[in-house]
C-alpha cells in the first residue's frame, strides 16, 4: 500500500476533522481509495470519509488493509508539511506507518491495534437542504454561540433561518436576507432541528476554508448531515444527532 497526496491541505482537513471526534482512528485502504468512519465516544456524532484513489497523485493498494493511528501523533507529522508539500504514506513490515513529508522528511510512526467495528450510517430521510459557504456557516455558528449552546435550523417552504436561545437571550438569523452567500434552500417538508454547537463548531473550524461550500441536510428532530465539499475528496459527511424532547 502506498498513497501520495498532491499538496497537504486535504489531508490536514481530514485529520483535523477526525481529531474533533476520536483519539484513535482506523483507516481502510482498498484499491478504490481510503475510507474512515467513526463516532465520538458518546455516539453523538459520526464522520464518514471516502477519499478516492483518483484524488491522489500516486495510489497503489494490492490488498485491502486496515491501519490504526493515534490522531494527535499523526496530526503533528502532517502539520510539518507546507501547503504545497506532498505527503506519502505506506506501511512497513514492522507495522510502522512511513510518512514522507515533502521531499526529504521521512517519519516512521507506530501503528496501533485497530479496534475497528463496522459502523453503519443513520438511515433517515432528509426533508430539507441548505447549501452555503463554509465561511458563512462558521460565522453563523459564532453569531448563535454568543447566546446559546445549541443551533436550531428551521425551514419552511424554501425559506430558512438559524436561531439560538439561551439564558441571556436569543438570536434569529434569517437566511433570506443574505441570499448572496446562500446557494440553495429547499424543503419537501417544513423542518426544525436543534443541534449542539459543542460538536458543530470544532468540525466546521477544522475543515475550515478547505471546504468552499457545505450542504446541511436534515428533517425535524432527526440527525443533521453536513457534507463538506473539498475539491479532491469524494466525501466528508458529518452526522450529528439532534437534541430532542425527552
Amino acid at each position: 500500500f502506498e498513497a501520495k497526496t498532491s499538496g497537504s491541505d486535504d489531508l490536514k482537513a481530514i485529520i483535523s476533522a477526525i481529531s474533533t471526534l476520536v483519539e484513535e482512528a482506523t483507516f481502510v485502504a482498498t484499491a478504490e481509495g481510503i475510507t474512515f468512519r467513526g463516532m465520538d465516544p458518546s455516539h453523538v456524532a459520526l464522520i464518514d470519509i471516502s477519499w478516492p484513489n483518483s484524488a491522489f497523485e500516486k495510489y497503489e493498494c494490492d490488498s485491502d488493509i486496515k491501519f490504526g493511528v493515534r490522531i494527535d501523533e499523526f496530526s503533528k507529522l502532517i502539520k510539518r508539511a507546507d501547503k504545497k508539500d506532498s505527503i506519502e504514506i505506506s506501511i512497513s513490515e514492522q507495522n510502522m506507518l512511513l510518512v514522507t513529508v515533502g521531499k526529504n522528511k521521512k517519519y516512521k510512526m507506530r501503528l496501533i491495534e485497530s479496534s475497528a467495528t463496522d459502523t453503519p450510517l443513520p438511515k433517515i430521510p432528509y426533508d430539507s437542504k441548505i447549501t452555503l459557504s463554509s465561511s458563512r456557516f462558521d460565522k453563523i455558528l459564532g453569531d448563535v454561540q454568543v447566546v446559546s449552546d445549541y443551533l436550531t435550523i428551521h425551514t419552511s417552504d424554501s425559506k430558512a433561518d438559524f436561531s439560538g436561545k439561551g439564558d441571556s437571550g436569543e438570536v434569529v438569523i434569517d437566511l433570506e436576507k443574505d441570499i448572496d452567500e446562500i446557494g440553495e434552500i429547499s424543503s419537501k417538508e417544513d423542518s426544525i432541528g436543534t443541534y449542539s454547537l459543542e460538536y458543530l463548531n470544532p468540525v466546521v473550524k477544522a475543515v475550515g476554508t478547505t471546504a468552499g461550500q457545505i450542504t446541511c441536510e436534515f428533517s425535524s428532530a432527526k440527525p443533521l448531515r453536513i457534507e463538506f465539499k473539498v475539491a479532491n475528496i469524494g466525501r466528508i459527511h458529518f452526522y450529528l444527532a439532534p437534541r430532542v424532547e425527552s
Binding site: 463516532m39 443513520p122 438511515k123 440527525p223 444527532a241 437534541r243 430532542v244 425527552s246
Partner: peptide, 11 residues
Amino acid sequence: IRGQSSITNYF
C-alpha cells in the same frame, strides 16, 4: 426537557 440523542438511535 431537552436532551441529547444518540446517532445510534437512527441506525
